[in-house]
């Protein structure tokens, strides 16, 4: 519900605050506060478990989201530890400031949703190669590959650091080979589901 208010009334706090977190990228969003003829700006602050338990419940202003006009804030840089965080945002019009709007409940990066990696399987002569998406330093990959029809002899390769291309195997001529992959994030000890299977055929 958008708050549309007159000129000199108090400034309402942002509403409908929520966190969108996918693949360890965390974005706070909220409804815009609309004041006729005014530019409304927003500031975001966070409070980790450390600040609550050891830092006198202090709040820390984010770097990217001080006096911004957008209604989304990328908090990935600031909330990287797998602990519960409080998050809040307020509106500014000139010198006027609203009360804080606070995210309901904690946000913990542990709960980020993980998606399978983008992947491209390449048959380079008899070499089975895979190109994996670079998802950032926190990500590792588990790659499964097998000769079509021999699913029971599936092989696994763990890729800790993304290189442009990963060599999986030497293939037999005229055979089909299939590959699927998932991501793993060690700091939260969770994995994504597997990607769609992709198959390639060797020449000959």
């Amino acid at each position: 519900l958008l708050e549309i208010l007159g000129e000199d009334t108090w400034l309402p706090a942002p509403q409908n605050i929520s966190m969108l977190s996918t693949n360890m990228k965390h974005f706070l969003t909220w409804n815009p506060v609309i004041i006729q003829g005014e530019t409304v700006r927003y500031s975001v602050e966070f409070q980790g478990e450390y600040e609550r338990d050891y830092g006198n419940e202090s709040w820390i202003p984010t770097w990217e989201c001080s006096l911004i006009t957008a209604t989304v804030c990328n908090l990935t840089e600031d909330i990287s530890a797998p602990v519960p965080y409080n998050l809040r945002v307020r509106a500014h019009v000139g010198l006027r400031r609203s009360e804080w709007g606070t995210l309901k409940g904690f946000f913990n990066p542990l709960t980020t949703s993980l998606t399978p990696p983008l992947m491209k399987v390449i048959a380079d002569g008899y070499h089975l190669l895979v190109e994996l998406e670079d998802m950032g330093p926190a990500f590792q990959f588990c790659v499964l590959y097998w000769k079509k029809g021999q699913e029971s002899r599936m092989q696994q390769k763990v890729v800790k650091e993304v290189r442009s291309v990963v060599h999986l195997d030497i293939m037999e001529p005229g055979a089909d080979y299939c590959v699927k992959a998932q991501t793993h994030v060690e700091v939260i000890n969770r994995s994504s589901s597997f990607s769609q299977t992709q198959c390639v055929r060797t020449q000959g």
């Binding site: 478990e49 450390y50 338990d53 600031d78 909330i79 965080y85």
Partner: peptide, 9 residues
């Protein structure tokens, strides 16, 4: 803050 919270974890 980021380091301290990671240490807690």
């Amino acid at each position: 803050s980021s380091i301290a919270n990671s240490f807690l974890s």
